[in-house]
Simulated scan of single mutants.
Amino acid sequence: MKHLSVLALSLLAPVAAWSAVAVAAPPALDNTAYVLMDFDSGRILSERNAQQPLPPASLTKMMTSYLVEQALKSGRLKPDDQVRVSENAWCRGTSAESCMYLPLNGSASVLDMLRGIIIQSGNDASKAVAEHLAGTEASFAGLMNAEAAKLGMKNSHFANATGLPDPTHKASAQDLAILARAIIGNSSEYYGIYAEKEFKYNGIKQGNRNALLYTDPTVDGLKTGHTAEAGYCLTASAKRNGMRLISVVMGTKSMQDRADQTRALFNWGFATWENVKPVSAGVSLAKAPVRFGKVDEVNAGVAKDFIATVPRGQAGAVKSEVQLLPNITAPIAQGATLGKVVVTVDGQVFGEQPLVALEPVEEAGFFKKLWQRILSWFK
């Protein structure tokens, strides 16, 4: 994007440098890895070993449920479609694994299966939907890995739909936060299930193992996990005063620890950080000059709100700068890229977003184009 023309838009007045602002240290946590992410901006607010591939236990089932949700959203699955329970999927009445307790060679609706996966952490439900969607659990694992790559989960590899131990089955805390963000953003029709406290199937009522759902009304998901190898894990999300955070803790020592550590991360995150919207969707940020168009300029803006997560008290340090492409030429479709918007916090680049045409521009007629060419010779 060379020779960009620059229009500085100081949407918010600068204040003291970010480095001059003291940010409270995050809580000290006894776990293998953790990450705290802002949902809207995707910014990592605190982490340790966040990119280390680790056994994810039943946090795996977030990918299983996400693929079911996306299949429902696309119409590939219907909520009342019946899913058969094969002998491979069936739980044999053991207490050694989490089960929905589906009957062998019986069936249940997709929506019941989804609740069984999310609320009851059913290995049987996870395997049954995997076979329903892909033929075999191994083939379904291929779908899981393809979706992980699509979402940008760079340090994960799925070998099964349940999270049962396998030496090749790994996921990082950061990747699981990315997955949780996708579930919240892309599966909103089904996200409410992650907050349900219990589910009864086949006469057996089981409670959601996410203890924070019972003690913190701002928490509305997502998933617990535990194996001897993985320790106690929890991916959770909370929303307070319009701001949503996602937490992942892995390798804690007990159910109580994973709940307490997640609570501490949320309390620190909401007290320490805030979101600022320096650029709003659909608002004209610049008049981009247009060559050979029926009009000589076009309104340029962004297609979606830009959210910047900054330390509390630093909202005034957020600025945005519009950078236009040279020689913007008609015809221009609505939504066509015209440049980019760069957001900075006290001069440090926070992120960028494409600058797009907010309306279409038709190509000018022959005589206007000819006149513009003549004028360009003199310039």
Rank of each mutant, 00 (worst) to 15 (best):
A96C: 06
A315I: 01
P360M: 13
G207V: 11
A317H: 03
S5M: 04
I117V: 15
N275T: 14
G93K: 14
V23E: 00
K154I: 08
P167I: 06
L11F: 11
E352Y: 08
P26N: 07
S254N: 00
L222A: 02
P103N: 10
W18V: 13
W18I: 14
N160C: 05
V283L: 05
F199Q: 01
T136K: 05
F306L: 04
G282C: 00
R263H: 15
R263L: 02
D81C: 02
S10K: 10
T94N: 06
A333N: 12
G269K: 09
Q314P: 01
P278W: 11
V129Q: 00
F350P: 07
K304G: 04
A161W: 02
S187H: 02
S109C: 04
M255F: 02
A89C: 11
S19H: 07
V349I: 14
A259C: 08
H3M: 04
W90H: 13
P103G: 07
L324A: 10
A308S: 11
N275S: 15
T309E: 13
K150R: 15
V302R: 03
R92W: 11
N241V: 07
V279A: 08
A259Q: 04
W273N: 11
G75K: 06
L111Q: 14
P14D: 05
V349G: 01
L355S: 11
